[in-house]
Computed example of a mutant assay.
Amino acid sequence: MPTARLQLWRDPALPWVESRRACHSRACYQAHSHPTLSIGAVDAGYSWFTGASDGRERLTPGTLVLVPAQRVHACNPDPGRAWSYQMLHVDAGWLTRLRLESGLAAVGPGAPARISRQAVLYQAFCALNDLLFSSASTGEKEAALVAFLGDHDFAAQPAAQAAPAPVLGSAALAALIEYIQTQDPAQLSLQALAQQAGLGRYQLIRAFRAATGLTPHAYLLNARVNRARQLLLDGLHLADVAYQLGFADQSHFQRVFKAHVGVTPGQYRQAQ
């Protein structure tokens, strides 16, 4: 059986981007979202992509998935099988500014994921990621990333199945998500969110799940994991991150983090 291998790339000089490559992985992910645009590529094996709706799409080698910020999703291999993939994360604010410079429309948070089966786009993405993991200069890597993201209008790719129409209005949902993002996620509760939205707790659960694909509890847990990413990059000790974000203990934090990110907190922090 081939040995599983994982590589993470990050450069302090390019803090708005990070990448990973996984070979022969059997790791599975819970439904989650990122504050970044995520571009995933299937290199070998087969997997299933799920968005905020109940639909699933089969991904084959050479497929690219483009997931906007805050779009709930998961991508997992066939049961009992391994697969190889690449994943690039780009800061949403930085990308919006770049797209405007390039004359492309900005992609709003939570927009539908898009799936490409174009060989040319897959090959261009692989070439970009190879460069990021190489010893090329920071300037060369930045230029290649800017060119790739500016050259390709991802909105032209087919959209994955959309989420059901939300009961919670777009303005109310945006305000609630902004509230979650600006508060300490460890201190937020279902009751506090329901009061903020002006709904009962059961009404909020149904409306929030219809709008985002996650229950408020799962969304808050996801927000804590995303906050943990930044705290780890800031150099905080694992135990301090777990305590600050309200996890029961360090082992609980590690289990939740790995279920969302695919690597342990220590592996994530140590990536160079």
Rank of each mutant, 00 (worst) to 15 (best):
G62C: 12
T63Q: 02
L66V: 15
G51A: 01
P61A: 02
R56D: 12
D78Q: 13
G55F: 13
P77N: 02
L66T: 09
A74G: 10
S47G: 15
V65C: 11
P68Q: 02
G40K: 02
V65H: 05
G40I: 03
G55S: 14
V67L: 14
A52C: 07
G62E: 06
N76D: 13
S53F: 03
V67E: 01
L37F: 14
A44D: 11
E57G: 12
G40D: 15
G62H: 07
A69C: 11
G45L: 10
S53T: 04
T50Q: 08
D43R: 12
R58H: 09
G40H: 05
R71M: 03
A44W: 10
A41I: 06
S53I: 00
H73S: 07
L66M: 14
D78F: 13
P61M: 05
C75F: 10
V42R: 04
D43A: 14
R56W: 03
L37A: 02
P61V: 00
S38Y: 14
G45K: 10
V65T: 08
P79K: 09
T60F: 09
L59N: 06
A74Y: 10
V67Y: 05
G55N: 14
S38W: 12
A74P: 01
D78Y: 10
L64V: 05
G51Q: 08
Y46P: 07
A44S: 13
V72P: 04
G62R: 00
A69N: 11
W48Q: 08
P77F: 03
T60K: 11
V42S: 07
P61N: 00
